[in-house]
């Protein structure tokens, strides 16, 4: 082998002794900077093994002297983020809800936090723009079943509607047909009457008949003028907004079968600060009272 080594006359470098079809490979040394970089990375790696978790073992791994773990680092980051909010959160929970608006910083904090809390917890039913869906109220408008002031919204978010919480808001739309409280023709008449409150073209006779039934059966919750009653969450039937739908078929179904949609009580799931943030956010959407 050794006799194959020779010096290349042009570069002055030794060859490796390898030759392919007359082409000889020069034994050019590595550039110095490259070598030093490699040595440095080797030293770095050794230090890394000692300091950081590195080698897999049979049932565990080498932990490293500073006790770093990616889970621990995540927990730390979450704790740090939470600590960074501590002041604003403390301010928010000690303040009167209706007074938060006067404190620009806390209010902005609440709106931003409420926006993301809403996206995580509320948008599944109310929609990402709080636009609602049949059975799930639109939170942008000025029609509120249980009241649209910050305190009322706060109570609703906290305890829910027909939830399993003791303080829950409770109201019931009976199933007038299923419970044999009204007959089918009566229900049809009441539906005509309810429709007539917001629309002009209706069957006058049916409306007149329906009005009698309404006063007897419905006015106790929806009010004599059918404008609703917030204590029971009974909707205003004279406005342009329909909770489940404003066509006759849907109204008939509502009266016949009753309605009992549920909103969960958030007090058991979220901290007070988050609930307040969501409350203020919902209130800011344009319909807040």
């Amino acid at each position: 082998m050794t006799e194959n080594f020779e010096k290349d006359e042009f570069s002055g470098t030794q060859t490796t002794g390898h030759e392919w079809d007359g082409i000889k490979e020069l034994d050019t040394p590595m550039p110095r900077w490259w070598l030093w970089t490699m040595y440095a990375t080797i030293i770095w790696a050794i230090g890394y093994w000692i300091i950081m978790p590195a080698w897999p073992m049979v049932s565990s791994f080498t932990k490293g002297v500073i006790g770093y773990s990616s889970r621990g680092s995540l927990e730390q980051a979450l704790a740090d983020a939470s600590a960074a909010h501590a002041t604003d959160r403390a301010a928010l929970v000690t303040m009167e809800l209706s007074a938060v608006k006067d404190d620009a910083r806390t209010y902005q904090y609440a709106l931003q936090g409420g926006k993301s809390a809403f996206a995580v917890n509320c948008s599944q039913c109310h929609g990402s723009g709080a636009q609602g869906a049949p059975g799930f109220p639109n939170l942008n408008d000025d029609d509120w079943l249980w009241g649209g002031s910050v305190d009322k919204i706060y109570e609703t978010v906290k305890y829910g509607i027909r939830s399993d919480h003791d303080e829950t808001r409770l109201g019931e739309m009976p199933a007038f047909l299923d419970d044999e409280l009204l007959t089918r023709p009566e229900i049809s008449d009441v539906a005509d009457y309810v429709l007539s409150l917001s629309q002009s073209n209706s069957d006058a006779d049916a409306v007149a008949r329906g009005k009698t039934v309404f006063v007897e059966e419905c006015a106790s919750c929806h009010g004599d003028k059918a404008t609703g009653l917030r204590e029971f969450g009974a909707p205003n039937l004279t406005d342009a907004i329909w909770f489940y739908g404003g066509d006759k078929k849907t109204i008939v179904r509502t009266i016949s079968k009753g309605r009992a949609n549920v909103m969960p009580a958030w007090v058991d799931r979220l901290d007070d600060s988050t609930i307040r943030q969501m409350t203020l956010f919902v209130h800011s959407l344009g319909g807040g009272e």
Binding site: G127, S128, G129, Q131, D142, D143, D239, A240, G286
Partner: peptide, 18 residues
């Protein structure tokens, strides 16, 4: 302009944009 929702119907039937 708000795109979600595109517009909101109010109690009195008027239309609101944000």
């Amino acid at each position: 302009r708000d795109r979600n929702p595109l517009f909101v119907t109010l109690s009195d039937g008027s239309i609101r944009n944000g």
